Simulated assay, not measured.
Amino acid sequence: MAFLHVVFVGLVIAAIAAAAWFLTPRGKNQVLIRSSVTLTLICCYLMWAITYLAQLHPLIAPRKSDLRHAEY
Rank of each mutant, 00 (worst) to 15 (best):
L41R: 03
V12Q: 09
W21R: 05
G10F: 00
A70D: 09
E71K: 10
S65E: 10
W21Y: 15
A15V: 04
P62C: 03
L56K: 02
D66E: 12
H5I: 04
C43H: 06
G10C: 03
L56D: 00
V6C: 11
F3D: 12
I13D: 05
P25T: 04
S65H: 11
D66G: 00
Y45T: 02
V31L: 14
V9N: 10
L59T: 10
P62M: 04
N29V: 08
M1K: 05
S35V: 06
Q30K: 07
V7G: 01
C43L: 15
V31W: 14
L67A: 07
D66L: 11
L23S: 13
D66N: 15
L32K: 13
V31A: 09
I13S: 06
S65Q: 10
L41G: 02
A2W: 12
F3G: 02
V7H: 03
A2P: 04
M47H: 07
P62F: 08
S35Y: 11
L32W: 08
T38K: 05
K64S: 09
V31R: 13
C44L: 15
I50M: 11
L4R: 08
V9H: 11
V7I: 15
A18E: 08
V37P: 01
L46V: 06
R68H: 12
A61P: 06
T51A: 14
L4I: 12
